[in-house]
């Protein structure tokens, strides 16, 4: 696959800044695997991770998913670690909250007195926090394996096959397409606002942001008119249908997935 967006171009900037995942999904070494199978695999894996909730299993999933994404999917290491750090704030904060217990009397081994209440860490609460931390990381790595190997339109086609309401999947198709067009417009507007010193200071920044957002919305609505004409010009009749072709499902892949799930099952049985 040779998707080449020249580095340094405007397009490249946009994709790296906002759509990093989409960019690497298009380039992924796992792109040509059957997309229904990829979605099913990721989803089943997610369900097992959250249902079993054992540290060993979570660790195994994190390692397996990261290695697959890095080695098979050929996602650059730097990009992968950068992506993994995105959810960290949320996870760390909420795990601290789970770990720390507040009460009117001292609890557990470690605690701080806060005048009226005590903040402490008990064995149980700490264990829950650690478990949740690894579980969430495992969940995120599973999601990344899917999103870094399957472009959104292919995921939407899988949803179509699952008989989700037509309106819903049609809107998803169009929204995915339009996101890139709007980013392009938004980016150009922001640059031109910056060129006119629109982002100096909080007050001007707010005004400029609102201006950009407002004109972005207007241009979006105006464009949507022309886009509807373009749909009609090719005989659109209320149904948005495309040729959807699947990459073939290979026996080798089914077998490896089966082995993977057996291993998961064993870890779930014996692990802690």
């Amino acid at each position: 696959m040779s998707v080449c967006v020249p580095p340094g171009s405007k397009q490249f900037f946009l994709l790296v800044k906002f759509m990093l995942i989409d960019h690497y999904a298009q380039l992924s070494g796992l792109r040509k695997y059957n997309s229904s199978a990829k979605v099913a695999f990721a989803f089943l894996n997610l369900c097992i991770v959250i249902a079993v909730n054992k540290i060993t299993l979570s660790l195994f999933v994190i390692v397996f998913m990261s290695l697959t994404a890095l080695l098979k999917g050929k996602t650059p290491f730097k990009v992968y670690t950068r992506l993994m750090s995105i959810p960290l704030t949320f996870i760390v904060l909420s795990c601290i909250m789970i770990g720390v217990e507040f009460s009117s009397r001292p609890l557990g081994k470690y605690f701080i007195s806060l005048h009226f209440i005590y903040a402490g860490i008990t064995r149980n609460s700490a264990l829950t926090a650690v478990k949740v931390f690894f579980k969430a990381m495992a969940g995120i790595s599973s999601l990344y394996l899917l999103s870094l190997s399957t472009p959104v339109n292919e995921i939407v086609m899988v949803l179509e096959r699952l008989r989700l309401p037509k309106i819903f999947t049609e809107l998803m198709h169009l929204i995915y397409r339009y996101i890139f067009i709007l980013f392009d417009t938004a980016f150009r507007m922001q640059i031109s606002a910056k060129a006119r010193l629109g982002f100096c200071g909080f007050k001007t920044s707010c005004k400029s942001f609102a201006m950009v957002a407002g004109s972005l919305f207007i241009s979006a609505l105006k464009k949507s008119q022309a886009y509807y004409d373009a749909l009609l010009s090719r005989g659109y009749d209320g149904r948005l249908e495309f040729l959807s072709e699947e990459y073939p499902l290979k026996a080798r892949h089914i077998l490896s997935a089966a082995i993977y799930f057996v291993v998961l099952f064993l870890i779930a049985k014996v692990g802690v």
Partner: peptide, 21 residues
């Protein structure tokens, strides 16, 4: 503007839109 005409997110699906309709 080609951008206003292209609606699908991959070239093959895009070209197939007219014939399917």
């Amino acid at each position: 503007e080609a951008d206003s005409q292209i609606i699908a997110s991959n070239v093959r699906s895009e070209i197939s839109f007219g014939p399917i309709n």
